[in-house]
Design a protein around this nucleic acid. Structure first.
Lengths: 206, 206, 206, 206
DNA sequence: TAGTAACCGAGACGGTACGTCCCGTCTTCTG
DNA sequence: CAGAAGACGGGACGTACCGTCTCGGTTACTA
């Protein structure tokens, strides 16, 4: 019944959006989360730091977490570029160790750690944000593992009855566990051990 | 030269603490987190629900999260009692599946999920609280796995070169991953698969 | 080198001030002081009664007393209008008795007594507020006496060597004394006696 | 009907009262009012400074103001001793100027000003305390004026129709007015002028 | 080329919760 | 049993942000 041309009175016109402000907000958000931590980062603070009115934030994002999510995605996009693949040298063990070591390094780097941790924590508690976090950031990463493992399965390096979506969690799950909960240090050795244990099993071969 | 026995002038005298208030605060905190979720639970709200002055909370706990942590520990203590063991029937696979299925059930039960999730999220972002969470709640659980795995190692069911502290994370890590990040449903089947994959490895036997 | 026009970064922009809120705060403050007395009137209470955020009060006034002072000044302004003069019929004694009796009536009226007493008491203890109270409310009143007395001096009804600023205190001082300290009742007879004694002296004429 | 020997359960046994504590409380109260001002002086602060439990204060006094009133009376008692008289040299004018100048000096001395001002302010707002203040501290002083003026009246230095209770307020009222409201400086010259004006009147003698 | 509609920086507003300070009461232990 | 000590339920403080709401000002499409 509503005139389809009439835009929803609450939807702003994104063609007129200020790109300069958007980027300034991303920068301010990431900087503040890095400096103050997520809980002490406020929307007012982001606006002030970005030299932007509060309304400009509220116009385009529903929450502080959403701002950070986008800012982080923007960051990831730039960093990603062409490397969005797990190498496939034919040696599954080596390829996995390589990528897991890289992940460990990323998790240990402050520029990544602070915002990613904040987002993950928020997603843990807020299902809507959590779903976005998974869909936009996590799942694409996980699909890379599926792809590489499928290749290994095709090459008969992984048993054919293995559910690859579960298999990848043997690598990613423990890593994330140590990262988020800080139980023990995240090292290359740990990454290697994970690959070994998961690929070859814990049991004595009989 | 300060009398080492002299307590910090700002430390309250715990021998005079009101037990009635402490319990009322635990109850109120858990109830409110269950009803409203963690972020909408406030210290003021807990105090009001518990029929307690705010200062009584601030006197004994440094933060909302700390209250919840203690409340949750108190809850766990009551629930724990004698069952704090992983069964050891000699069949490692079966024992692990049993305990992992139980863990899955726990994670799927709302009474546990809400406060545990809130605590975990808070711990992700606040290192001090995180350390307490791990030390008081998580690590004791993990040590049960170490114990059971050591028994298996002694029985030659697990290879002798395996680091058990890492091994356990092959089970617990993926479970926690799905629970916290809600990537996919947490089922008994998933728990079983985890045990199978971790024990016997992903690779084709050669 | 700082731009002298640049307002203090913490000074709010008074052109954007809400007049509706200001008046509501005046009304609430006066009403509450009347109903509960000054010490039991709280800023929180004023805000609630006025349907206003607390910050709106703190933004514009430094203290509860300052709110009441302004509210009272606003009240006085409305009440004042054209009557801000001591009559000058040529009969000093009669004119002074008239105005002093009016003052007595005012001091005995509850609507004036409660807030004025509260302000005076606060001014007694807080020099800054006291100075404002005197400057904004009291001194203008006192100057009316100076004016009337000067007219009398010109007419040779008052000795030329009399310091009029001191003279007026012979009338106003005792009145205020009885009002504030409640030593004895404030009556028209008292006002008349004050005028008689001050004008003609206590001594036996020789 | 109540056993007349049984003391009211709320009335403490004053024979067992600690004099040491009482004096310490007086000292602490006066010191704190001098240092912090009355509003920032708290019962907890007095107790801490006096090395006394809060209950010891609440047992013996109904309010902060009551403590200060007693402390001030105690102070006045010590200071008073034998000088509790207005001199009567036969020269009323000289005698009044002497005592008024002394009063001015007292009002200008910080040790007297702070607590007296605080008490007066509290009395302005709290009728019960005000009544005590007047009865215990002010009225005895005022009666000294009545006595001296009666002597003057007997000596025919003051007209016989003068109401002395009113007359004294011509001196005390303006002094108190300047002291409490800080309109203008309190000087010996002011005291002298007051005596002159009040005794001989403002009008031109005809 | 003027008009006008939207975004923009700015920040006042009604609110909620914060963490702190005291209040006056109650309880425990000491001299 | 008075007194020192201080925990308690409670209430207000003054502050920090929330999300909404004007307010000029500056673009950037429309008439």
């Amino acid at each position: 019944m509503t005139d389809p041309k009439a835009p929803d009175s609450k939807t702003p016109d994104s063609t007129r959006r200020s790109d300069r402000s958007r980027r300034a907000i991303y920068d301010a958000a990431l900087a503040l989360v890095g400096e103050l931590g997520y809980p002490r980062t406020t929307i007012e603070g982001i606006a002030a730091r970005a030299g932007v009115g509060k309304q400009t934030i509220y116009r385009w994002w529903p929450s502080k977490a959403a701002v950070l999510l986008e800012a982080f995605m923007d960051l990831a996009e730039q960093a990603a570029a062409g490397e969005a693949e797990i190498p496939d040298t034919g040696d599954l063990e080596a390829d996995l160790k390589l990528v897991l070591r890289a992940t460990v390094d990323e998790m240990n780097s402050p520029g990544y750690d602070a915002p990613a941790r904040a987002l993950a924590a928020e997603g843990v508690v807020d299902p809507v944000l959590g779903a976005q976090f998974v869909e936009k950031l996590l799942e694409p990463q996980l699909q890379l593992y599926v792809k590489r493992l499928r290749s290994a399965q095709d090459a008969d390096d992984v048993r054919p009855d293995i559910d690859l979506r579960i298999a990848l969690e043997l690598f990613v799950g423990p890593l994330t566990h140590r990262w988020l909960l800080r139980t023990l240090p995240l090292t290359h050795g740990y990454a290697d051990a994970l690959v070994d244990y998961a690929l070859y099993g814990l049991t004595a071969r009989r």
